[in-house]
Amino acid sequence: MAIRARRYADAKAQASTNTELLWWVFMRVSGVVMVFLVLGHILMNFVLIDVNTINYQYVAGRLSNTTWKIYDWLILVLAMLHGMNGLRYVMDDWIRDPSRRFVTKAVVYSLAVLVTVVGSFSLLNHDFSKDLSQNTPTQGTMTKP
């Protein structure tokens, strides 16, 4: 199909190669994966222990373990990508003016990148094991105030 487009957006719309199929697959896969990740998170932090007993020591104890770091980081990244792609669908569908759509997308994507970067830094760039004092219990056994 020959591309006869006046604007970049038209050319993009008419191009037969795009990532829409891959995004469609990603939405399904990430959705299913996140159901299990988040259910596991809820089970570990709300069901198996009393959420009121969670303090910084408990969180630092968990996050000094690489497995839980990767676990939490996966939730962060998948949720951001899944949510932002959903928002991209909404913006593509409902903001008709190309310049307004561009500006809105620029703002939303910048915020998304910011949140992901800050989240990743606080998860991965900090040594939580340093914050663990030897005397304080790490497993949700703190007495209620």
Partner: peptide, 15 residues
């Protein structure tokens, strides 16, 4: 047919 169906204005627009 994919040229039209797989375009960003094609089937993937269906919600």
């Amino acid at each position: 047919r994919m040229a039209a169906l797989n375009a960003s204005t094609g089937v993937w627009r269906c919600r």
